[in-house]
Write a protein that binds this DNA or RNA. Structure first.
Lengths: 198, 198
DNA sequence: CTATATATGTACTGATCGGTATGGTATTTG
DNA sequence: CAAATACCATACCGATCAGTACATATATAG
């Protein structure tokens, strides 16, 4: 009874989702058509709809995958560093590398997936905005912990520091989308660290 | 003979262009439809085409206007400051204010107009990329002059410094598009200045 | 085997996209 | 006045958009 009834699917849904992720990452939500998606995924329209719902749901699933395994993962790893400075150092470095990974499109899906859009895609835009906020919030909480532990100065403002670091990473996304090199971004990361207190 | 022959135009082309600019600014190039444009501009399609060519030319004209009178102007003003530090200080501050001007859409047209897009809008994306580069280049040249004048350290790297400042402003654009407040961005600007040499 | 359930490929839907043909209207020129 | 010119409004163009109806193919369940 473990085997499914009916004709089995002929494609690997995870592999197809990865292909869709690449297209969304490169062209953005609005810039990607269903034809682009089905061609990249190697399946036809009804299969896409049966497996993933619709364009919007497919995007959300691709975004989840991006968060789990793409640059989002590099961000989470950095939060595990023992010191606040180590967190920020590794975060900026990881982001610089991830945004210029030659195996992937340049830049960050959460930034360039739908920074602006028509009314039809408004909910996607807000979803991405929410994800960026969550990443900033996670960093803020990590820095609040560091403050409580005496790891950063007692007069430091974790919210402000987290916003500064987020601003750098988002700026690096725009730079990467515009063709900045990996070394360029690493140097930006190094320079940003000079603003770090202590 | 100075008056035009034929029936005179019934709308103000400059005012209509400003309206178009606001729509592109808010929704991006791909996210803006001709119907959005004609409704905002208060004219109908043939009038738009007669006066501005097509959607792409209209966007370029709106972009020129943005550069002349919008946040782009604030950037040029900053370059006229007498010291390198003054330039960067005023640049970051002006950008923080311009990106959160309550009279305009949040963020920067050159960033969010077409950060990613489908193939049809590729040339617009590249045009915006080029404009961002030009802004960075102008700052770099200003810093090179400052270096020649002994205004910044002889071992400073103007290209790297300019890239750092550009990254901050572009990051602030993403933050503004996501709803960051004016004070938030001013604090980011202040913090970035701590990384400034000397 | 038959019945059922799911996937696939083709070909379609109505809506909207950017762009335009056409015909009526207002203005200047002679 | 009439001719020439350019704008305005409606209504349309083919192409493409996201999404789907339908028939066929392939599997399991009984």
């Amino acid at each position: 009874m473990q085997a499914h009834k009916g004709r089995p699917r002929e494609f690997d849904a995870d592999a197809a989702l990865d292909k869709a992720l690449l297209v969304f990452w490169q062209c953005g939500y609005e810039g990607t058509s269903l034809t682009d998606l089905t061609e990249a995924m190697g399946i036809n329209r009804p299969s896409l709809y049966a497996a993933f719902g619709n364009k919007e749901e497919l995007f959300r699933r691709a975004l989840d995958r991006y968060t789990e395994r793409g640059p989002g993962r590099a961000v989470r790893e950095a939060l595990a560093e023992p010191t606040a400075r180590g967190v920020v150092e590794r975060l900026l470095k990881n982001v610089a590398l991830a945004l210029t990974d030659p195996c992937n499109p340049r830049g960050c899906l959460a930034v360039q997936g739908a920074l602006t859009c028509g009314e039809a895609s408004e909910s996607i835009k807000q979803e991405l905005c929410r994800r960026r906020s969550e990443a900033e919030q996670a960093l803020r909480e990590r820095l609040e912990r560091a403050k409580a532990e005496g790891d950063i100065a007692s007069d430091a403002d974790p919210a402000q520091l987290a916003r500064f670091v987020s601003t750098i990473t988002q700026g690096m996304s725009v730079q990467a989308a515009g063709g900045a090199s990996r070394d360029d971004l690493v140097r930006v990361a190094d320079m940003a660290l000079k603003a770090w207190p202590g």
